[in-house]
């Protein structure tokens, strides 16, 4: 292995663990110990990444208070260095981490608040894609039928807690006094003209759109929706999708409607 590759591997390991013995012989002391010099880079890394997570997860940070947040994210950072250089992409696994983090067991809604905040971040940073025209959509629906797969300009999240209310109450500075309520919500998160829209959907609408957003065919999505709401109207649901300008792509590998073949 090259000396540079070995050095960079050791350095990353020291930043994560705080153990610098592997670098002692590689670094010139010059009045400081190697550990003191490496610690500056460790501090810089943890401070930068903590700030990045506080920016992405303001409601989680406020719910647990900043000191506890710093404690929790220090554990998260040590186990999960970024895998991309851009900070807005860092922290995708934070909700999963919180779900398994025993000190926040008394905040059962916290992982779902984090999931919502990540969805908000993802929607805000998603590339801009123009909606499909009604004509394109109609033509593709005719061609592919139940095999149609659509890319939607939104993210879908469900929770047993009113995480949208918790998020709204805790993302700013104002005291709201809102307390978490256990009530299932099904949410659609997408970029809007002046920020991000987080809105509740009924069971049928959410189920159809969630399945489509996962890349499933229209046929599978409709079947899943009918199992939740027997009076589900697929034609009206598709009309609503087009009206809300949600479809932005026809996904590949769709089957051809045998009726039109």
């Amino acid at each position: 292995m090259s000396a540079l590759l070995e050095l960079q591997r050791s350095f990353l390991g020291s930043i994560v663990s705080g153990e610098t013995a592997a670098l002692d012989d590689a670094i010139i002391g010059g009045g400081f110990t190697a550990a003191q010099r490496v610690q500056i880079y460790r501090n810089n890394t943890f401070i930068t990444l903590t700030e990045a997570l506080a920016t992405t997860y303001p409601a989680v940070c406020r719910l647990v208070d900043r000191r506890f947040f710093n404690f929790a994210v220090a554990r998260y950072i040590a186990e999960n260095l970024p895998d991309r250089p851009c900070l807005f992409e860092y922290g995708a696994g934070f909700a999963g981490f919180l779900a398994g983090f025993a000190p926040v067991a008394d905040y059962p809604f916290l992982p779902d608040v984090a999931r919502l905040e990540w969805a908000v971040n993802a929607a805000w940073n998603a590339p801009e894609r123009p909606p499909l025209s009604a004509e394109t959509l109609a033509a593709e629906a005719t061609r592919a039928g139940e095999g149609l797969r659509l890319g939607l300009d939104a993210l879908y999240l469900s929770s047993g807690w009113e995480v949208d209310a918790i998020w709204l109450a805790n993302r700013g500075e104002a005291e709201t006094g809102a307390s978490p309520a256990y009530q299932p919500v099904r949410l659609e998160i997408r970029r809007a003209a002046n920020g991000i829209s987080v809105r509740r959907l009924d069971v049928a609408t959410w189920t159809l759109r969630d399945h489509l957003a996962r890349g499933e065919t229209l046929g599978h999505a409709a079947e899943a929706t009918l199992s939740q709401a027997a009076d589900f109207d697929l034609t009206a649901a598709l009309r609503a999708l087009a009206f809300e300008r949600l479809p932005v792509a026809i996904l590949p590998n769709q089957g051809v409607n045998p009726c039109n073949a």
Partner: peptide
């Protein structure tokens, strides 16, 4: 350098000033 093996420090770490690092 900041990253290695798919992990990123988001800090700017100096290189050793060697012929190998110069080549890289």
């Amino acid at each position: 350098w900041s990253g290695h093996g798919g992990a990123w420090l988001n800090d700017l770490v100096p290189l050793p000033y060697t012929e190998e690092a110069l080549n890289v």
